[in-house]
Design a protein around this nucleic acid. Structure first.
Lengths: 184, 184
DNA sequence: GCGTAGTGTTCCTGACTGGAACAATCACCC
DNA sequence: GGGTGATTGTTCCAGTCAGGAACACTACGC
């Protein structure tokens, strides 16, 4: 494997390193629960595309559906684990990319009435609070579990990171709102 | 215009509301300088695709290249301004999406040696500092300018937002590093 | 026995990235 | 004056990816 796969492949591969075999559907759920705070959760269709790709490369293998199961679960192979580790060690991380629709709208705030901009920021605050509640739930569910090799330590760290990030953004938006109120 | 264009269209359209006519190339530069901190900067090829689309919809119009100019500059039309305003008022903002390669790697940190993870975080700190210096430059260049209707007030606000965000992330990463050091 | 919510998968369209390729202009140095 | 390299400027292509529609099967309550 000399060439990197798309990052989404490694993200999904990573979700399979915590000891569970997952179907495409479960993988998507797992991504929505844990990954989406730091990496845009791939569309359902994309998950299946990736599983096919990963199977072709021998990085995961389907455990054929038994008589009781609806569909096949995927397990990461030894080669998959090696490739993921190689990627972690060799591929440079690059900088985060962000699509922030609220910031984008604020940037052209001069086109609309200031009251509208304030409403936008207030509704963003609400969404931040909801997001934070979600992530707190995730964090708690992680603390309870254990996995081979203390694997859940890092997801916990990342969840804490996310929570602090959200708290920070809340504080920033509140300050911005205050400035908008004061400056008229 | 009953249907929304892709968000990238509005982002580029927004860059044309600050009083300058820009070529595709200049538009890309502008996006790299100001937009990229909040909205992933579109590829060069995408900028030209968008300009074509916006022209087709009558939202921008090319000012034909005079004898001294290399290429045509684009100006936002009255219709373009109306459409951007309509979008601001009608289209819901949605939640930010993030691709954070450092968080993604930290999530599967159990696969590699902890020293490698620490090195990853430290190098991210360096990048954050560089990013912050860039953004400080942008912020200063905004303060000096003025535009019709106090248009640069909002980009200044957004730049402040970005700076606080970066400072916050720096603090979080430093705390994470400390925890990794303490816990072994 | 019937609706509806959840599980599970596939397909298609269009958005978007990244890189390669091309060409013209300008500055600089030898 | 001629090379060399950076900057401006644009186009094309392959492949990634998102979003939504469509489909089917199972479980549960009424």
């Amino acid at each position: 494997m000399s060439q990197d796969l798309p990052t989404t492949s490694y993200a999904l591969l990573g979700l399979l390193t915590f000891g569970d075999d997952l179907t495409g559907y479960e993988l998507k759920q797992r991504a929505d629960r844990t990954l989406r705070f730091y990496w845009v959760s791939p569309a359902m269709s994309q998950v299946y595309t990736e599983l096919e790709r990963l199977t072709d490369h021998g990085l995961v293998s389907p455990r054929e559906a038994g008589p009781n199961q609806k569909s096949s679960k995927y397990r990461i192979t030894a080669k998959g684990r090696r490739e993921l580790t190689r990627w972690l060690e060799e591929a440079p991380a690059g900088f985060p990319t962000l699509k922030h629709p609220v910031a984008l709208r604020l940037l052209v705030g001069h086109l609309v009435d200031p009251s509208r901009t304030r409403a936008l920021l207030r509704s963003h605050l609400d969404e931040l609070a909801a997001h934070r509640a979600d992530l707190e739930g995730v964090r708690e569910s992680l603390v309870g579990r254990d996995a081979p090799g203390d694997a859940f330590r890092y997801p916990s760290l990342v969840a804490d990171w996310g929570l602090e990030y959200l708290a920070g953004e809340q504080a920033i938006i509140e300050k911005l709102l205050q400035r908008l109120d004061e400056e008229g």
